[in-house]
Write a protein that binds this DNA or RNA. Sequence first.
DNA 1: CAAAGTTCCTGCGAGC
DNA 2: TGCTCGCAGGAACTTT
Length: 302
Amino acid sequence: MPELPEVETVRSGLEQAWVGRTIIEVILRRDGLRFPFPENMVNVLTGAKVESVRRRAKYLLIDTNNGYVFLSHLGMSGRYTLITSSEVPSYSEHSAGPAHSKFGKLTGFDGRHDHMEFRFDDGSVAVYTDPRRFGIADVFERAEEPIQSLLEHLGPEPLEQWNADDAARRCQGKRSPIKTTLLDQRFVVGVGNIYACEALHRSGISPTRMTYSLVRKNGKPTKDLTRLVKEVKEVLRAAIEVGGSTLNDFAAVDGTLGYFGHHFQVYDREDGPCLKDGCNGTIERITQSNRSTFLCPRCQKK
DNA sequence: CAAAGTTCCTGCGAGC
DNA sequence: TGCTCGCAGGAACTTT
């Protein structure tokens, strides 16, 4: 479920639900997710009031009033379900998530993969569900945030400081396909497999094109790179908008709704017609760095 | 067989 | 020639 727009949607939902509330109980149902839970996590979070919910790249950062940060990464299949005090939490009633969701099987609130539970002072409960357990949960002191190994090597936020000159500097001399570079979180954060494919298609750039070829000899960005930076920003912004609108309609904080609401131009559309105006190409699927890439060979040039 | 993410290991090429 | 450094590519984690 998690690229930047989906994580941003979750952030917004958690912010509404959690800020100003105090966690009265934390229940862990296993040793950890991708990494073991820190020993002090339950102690640190129990009794702490949530002050803010931030996002950095695809990480959620929850600040508490005792000077700590709760870090949550959703991995591939992580999800939060919020249950308000008026609802009776029951696994049998919340069986599988949206029945129409392609990812419903992976993200359902099903009782078998509910690894963390947070109870709040207003009677609400948040359940973290993650079948594949690629997610991360961690706590650290706020003052230590700059030296967190998970955060310190991250590149720029695409919707903030990032621009074509910055991108050009990071692309210079890079001997790997541009698709691979877009997925590299040191280049720019928040772009995953889906939006990398979408941004390249919007830009008319082949995913296999060498990264360095998007930079001029004088170190300045080419027209194509400038376009790519613009399209990355636009595709992410549009997806955040869709996610935000779905959030208003559902009590659950569910990033899959963000994906569901967005219909992709190329991703997962192998053999389908290219949807670009005036292009009669057919979408192809190739493999790059062990990941699927979708492209239109007709309108995405090398 | 493939899946929305990230880290770590290996191997190769460049440069000293 | 040989060694080290850095980068690029691939495997691994897990469950459905």
